[in-house]
Design a protein around this nucleic acid. Sequence first.
DNA 1: CAACGTTTCAAACAGCCGTTTATCAGCAGG
DNA 2: CCTGCTGATAAACGGCTGTTTGAAACGTTG
Lengths: 219, 219
Amino acid sequence: MAQTDTVTRILDTAEVLFAERGFAETSLRTITSKAKVNLAAVNYHFGSKKALIQAVFARYLDPFTERFHATLDTLEREYDGRPIPLEVLLENMARTVLEVPAERNSLKVFMRLLGLAYTQAQGHLRGYIQQHYGSVFTRFTELVRRATPELPDAERFWRLHFMLGTVIFTLSGLDALRDIAEKDYGEHVSVRDLIRRLRPVVVAGMNAPLPEPPRAVAV
Amino acid sequence: MAQTDTVTRILDTAEVLFAERGFAETSLRTITSKAKVNLAAVNYHFGSKKALIQAVFARYLDPFTERFHATLDTLEREYDGRPIPLEVLLENMARTVLEVPAERNSLKVFMRLLGLAYTQAQGHLRGYIQQHYGSVFTRFTELVRRATPELPDAERFWRLHFMLGTVIFTLSGLDALRDIAEKDYGEHVSVRDLIRRLRPVVVAGMNAPLPEPPRAVAV
DNA sequence: CAACGTTTCAAACAGCCGTTTATCAGCAGG
DNA sequence: CCTGCTGATAAACGGCTGTTTGAAACGTTG
């Protein structure tokens, strides 16, 4: 039991520190001292710092993908071949995203990590995530395709990433934004509040009119 | 003239490397060796690595804020007190963003840097940017407020940041996304192309219907 | 009890980091 | 001519990095 204790204590500490400062800016010494664990424990249990970073992600993404697949299974059974409306798809994804970290730690940490995975160099991480969790994303986008048949494929691809940017950027920079909002509007904003505000914006963005075709290329 | 040459050579090299790898992951030795400059030159001309980072941003943001203020002056004169439509505001901001880096380097670098400023730890940078360039942002948001009088202040605040996230996230992760898009749809995407696609999405997001009020708080 | 594999621990490793120092070249004005 | 100043340069500074080592402590199994 002692080694499990050490492993989880390292993971718990590491995910918070990574989320706060990024990967390169968080040293193993900072992690191990704050976790009250010997420095060598990380290399003993995980092998390397890279492997620790991946393990931190796996602890969030494994249960997420499992639940999300199950959710999509239920939806597909329920709609029985008919396309699932975009709002329903987004609603269920949001619910799954909210459920998973609630059991462990704050949603904020999860979102910060996702944002870092995109923006920090860490090439190994992008590869790892794509390799391990690409399938659930592919499945989701295929369902979105059936929900928005009027959109050209390329347009939908870009709009999905626009919306991904909206969500990840907002939730990962949440602390800073929340401070400003609280100061300017005296209003405390919870994550659930933010998701409530995000939904109509995302739906409207996906359903926006098509852009005018590039000039000087008209037939 | 020799020292100017050294300074600009450092800045040119640093901005590219920062954009590629982030701040912490880019060492002064990497910068100076690639720029063919002595290691001590950075500390001599800029004082510290932090100051170099700020100088890299200033070289983009100074001309941007100047031009954007001028653009807003023209618009305000043209509309003479009447609110400037949201589309016009966005259109002009996009044009200014496109103009400035075109004279120096790629827009991609500029956008990557903006994204990093938000997501990398670097507390000093956020403070520096807010202090030096907050005024133009405040002016812009005030014009947006007049363009969208029906939006509650808090809602507009959040939607502006949603859209900021969309743009910065997309353009800063552009290389990776472009690779995927090119592979999947065989279609090469220029930055101008992307901005053309972004516009209707951003407008629709800002004009989305208001979210339903939080449950169980109804009067 | 003894031998075992597993986990912890302190110490050391080589390497890179940002910054500082001291020396030297080139050029200006007295 | 020489004194001062600006900038370039090589070398060194202390400190922090991820990783490895070998020995000690542990609990389990024979």
